[in-house]
Each structure stands twice: as C-alpha cells, then as structure tokens.
Design a protein around this nucleic acid. Structure first.
Lengths: 133, 133
DNA sequence: TCTATACTTGAATAACTATTCATATATTTG
DNA sequence: CAAATATATGAATAGTTATTCAAGTATAGA
C-alpha cells in the first residue's frame, strides 16, 4: 500500500501488550514495526470522509448523470425524481470532497465532475463488484 | 462513466415534470435521455455499500496494515489498540465486500487483502486527497 | 475431558447521516 | 422595487452504524 506515513503515535506505555500467545505468528516487536505502515488516525479519518461521500446511492446516481454532461440542480432533481433540497444537500457533500465542481450562470448553478479520479474510482469499484459475487 | 445500464424504471406518470423553466439548459426530453446513463437504484445501493466499507477509519487502518502482511485478529487488535471484538466486527464488513480474505490455521484466523482493486482504490483516493485541498 | 485461547456474534447504546420542511439568499424579470 | 425562480441552509426526524459487553463456537493442549 502506498502512503508510507509520517507521524506515528505509538506510545510504549499502554495498549501494545500483545493479547496473542507465543504461538501467534506476529509478536510484539513485529507489531511495533507495523506501526509505520499503518495509516495515521487523522489521515484515515480524512480518507474515510472521502469514501463516505461515495457511500450513498443518491450521490452515486448524481455522479453517474454528471458523467454524461454538466447539469443544474433542478435538472438533477428532475432526473433523480427527488426534491431540489435533497439534491442540494447531497451536492454539498460531493463539493466538500471536491468530487464535483460548479459554475454559476444567472440563477442556475451547473455542476460537473471534478476530475478523473471520480471516474477511476467508479471503474475500480465496478470491476470489483463484477468479479464473482 | 462506464456501466451504461440495463433496466430503467422511468415512468411517464409522475415525477419527471421539470421544475426548471424554459431558460433552464436541459429540458424534459433531454432529461429523459439521461435516464439510460443513470446508475439504476439497485446497482447504486450495491456500490454505495461497497464504498461504505471503505468509509471508516478503523477499516482503512486495518487494510493499511494488511497491505504489508497477513495478520491474525489478535495481532490486528493489538496493532490498532482496539478490542478483538471491535476488530472482528469490522473485519466482517470488509469480508462482506470481499475486501479481505482469510485463512484458518489452528485457532488463529489470518486475514489478508483480497485483490488489487483495494490497493488501486486506496491509491486513487490518496492522489485525489493530495491534490490541493 | 476440562481449561484456556482465538475468534465470532447478538443486543444495546451512542454517534452519525439522509431527507423533509420551512426559511433564507441571490438573480432575473416586470 | 416587487414577484418569481433557482439554489442553499438549519433544524428536526428517522434510519443507519461503530463500539462495548456478554455470551457463544472452535481448536489446542494438559
């Protein structure tokens, strides 16, 4: 896994006493060596929020139609048969994770996909799901 | 976006009346044409569940240490400084989405990453997050 | 077979999240 | 400026989820 980590908060005072007995394959020293590989909590939280933005059917449907063209909120609401308010709330989540970008034009706000990562993540997930469930 | 969709439940009876006025860029006919591009609800839910499995700091940390080596539950618990029960519950979520696989050996259960999609998704997310926040 | 260990699981609780409803802001048009 | 439209937002509610605790299963060894 990438992200070989910077700050690790591994304190020898508490917690790392292994519950495993001696026959367990990995022991204290090795677990200590695992720490540098482990995603630091803060980064893990940031990343979880990002994946969280993708973890909702409504938001995924919004992204799927935005993949075809730029659309304003009321068109998105119409296409998904949802209230504009609900769509707007979800677009805010997508914006907060920079999954979509927007462009104001008069009273309309046109949304579109932010970058290619969105498509790539979508594709990876699709491939994974299509492999023998 | 991939996944050009199979069944679309677009019924002309209700919902698709456009809230947008005539100056809105996309009209009813075009919105109707959007439907085939839209992720069907069932697939969207399936995909949301998958991303949901990645949307938790604990599970991402588990994956990050499993990326370095196969590990048993008690070692994972020790490394993350969490109860074995909590870790086991989270591993169940990862298993349910086939993000990890496991191997029983005596009383230990050794977990490892399921396939390369995990790494790819991790990398895409990392790259996205590292771009100008 | 009895005990200990590794892991799993169900129920309960606390924290989080999606939608609705009401309201607010901004822009266009009369 | 007033009215209408497009979007955004705050509060409330209902549904979801992560962790804990207690109990359960399975395997190994005495």
């Amino acid at each position: 896994m990438p992200q070989p980590i910077q700050a690790v908060e591994f304190t020898p005072e508490h917690g790392e006493t292994p519950q495993c007995e001696s026959h367990c394959p990995v022991h204290l020293n090795q677990i200590r060596q695992l720490q540098p590989e482990m995603l630091p909590l803060e980064r893990a939280q940031q990343m979880a929020e990002f994946f969280g933005a993708l973890a909702d059917p409504t938001r995924l449907r919004l992204l799927s139609v935005l993949a075809t063209q730029e659309l304003c909120v009321c068109d998105l609401a119409t296409a998904l048969k949802m209230s504009e308010s609900a769509v707007s709330h979800q677009l805010r989540v997508l914006r907060s994770q920079r999954l979509v970008k927007y462009r104001k034009e008069g009273r309309n706000v046109h949304y579109s996909l932010a970058d290619s990562h969105v498509i790539n993540l979508y594709r990876e997930a699709t491939e994974h799901l299509d492999e023998a469930d």
